[in-house]
Design a protein around this nucleic acid. Structure first.
Length: 279
DNA sequence: CCGAATTGATTTACATAGTC
DNA sequence: GACTATGTAAATCAATTCGG
């Protein structure tokens, strides 16, 4: 029986992503990197780079019947030092997380990864990614250019990535309270406040909003503008309670449109391989 | 009573000092 | 050096008071 793969507009996938990701606020930076490495592999695949040859010998992503077998080196996830307790903690935690997908047609849920392994002393980690999840990742990766992905990997904070996820597919302006925004970005509620507990909007803007916006402006298909939302909208000096984000679509950075045909061919080719196996 | 000036409160921009 | 916390002055609006 041929498995019906979800055929959904990229936008829907991205929305699904945002939804899921927003629930992963406590995901550690190492877990995030693992997820991003998977995304990276999806992009490589989209670009037609054979996974086997991708990034040297240590990294492998091989398609199986139900899963993608992934192999990488600890240094792909943990940049400084190599404490295997850390990588085990990250794999363990990530294996306990679930991705939920929903569109008009179907609903499903699966773990981010399964069968995580760490070979001691070699620094090699392996795990499996479900084909369903891989498909979603692939579609998401289409909207996220490689350059920016690398930047996200390097960012210890990952704010820009979260903003991207927040704004992708967003059509209307989005109001978010300061508390909610901090929550979504994984910033402790008491950060960016002075000792009296008052918000320092200036710092928040400087350290969080501006860098994220700058990163997205530079290379992403979706970015945003924002204005401050005040307690009393008529009073320009009243307290800032949140922000209103205006999504900005930058089609010049959307390679899906330009290379759409090529990408479609690549993806379809793999689908056909999968289909063949299923039948 | 009504508008103008003063006072008060609050936010922001800029600066400075401390920390890893 | 990058980041954080704190301080201070300028900006600016709301409320109050003043003068006619």
């Amino acid at each position: 029986m041929k498995k019906k793969l979800p055929i959904t507009k990229n936008k829907d996938v991205v929305v699904s992503w945002v939804y899921t990701w927003s629930k992963q606020q406590d995901m550690s930076i190492h877990e995030q990197r693992i997820v991003l490495r998977i995304l990276e592999a999806c992009q490589a695949e989209l670009k037609g780079v054979k996974l086997k040859d991708y990034a040297g010998t240590k990294r492998k992503f091989e398609h199986g019947l139900w899963d993608v077998d992934a192999q990488m080196h600890v240094s792909d996830v943990i940049f400084s030092g190599r404490d295997y307790n850390e990588i085990i903690a990250a794999l363990d935690s990530l294996a306990g997380r679930f991705f939920t997908y929903e569109d008009d047609e179907e609903w499903w849920k699966c773990g981010f990864i399964s069968n995580p392994k760490y070979k001691k002393r070699t620094g090699i980690i392996t795990f499996r990614v479900s084909n369903d999840l891989w498909d979603v990742f692939t579609k998401f990766a289409k909207g996220y250019r490689e350059f920016e992905l690398n930047k996200a990997l390097a960012l210890p904070t990952g704010y820009s990535l979260r903003f991207y996820m927040l704004m992708s597919g967003q059509v209307y302006p989005l109001d978010i309270s300061l508390e909610n925004l901090k929550d979504r970005l994984g910033i402790p509620a008491d950060k960016y406040k002075d000792k009296n507990g008052k918000d320092r909007i200036d710092h928040f803007e400087e350290r969080v909003l501006k860098p994220a916006k700058a990163a997205l402006d530079e290379s992403c298909p979706y970015t945003f503008n924002y204005v401050k939302v005040r307690e009393n909208p008529n009073n320009k000096r009243s307290k800032v309670t949140g922000f209103r984000f205006y999504p900005v679509y930058q089609p010049q950075f959307r390679d899906e449109e330009l290379e759409g045909k090529e990408l479609q061919a690549k993806v379809t080719a793999r689908y056909q391989i999968d289909s063949h196996v299923y039948e």
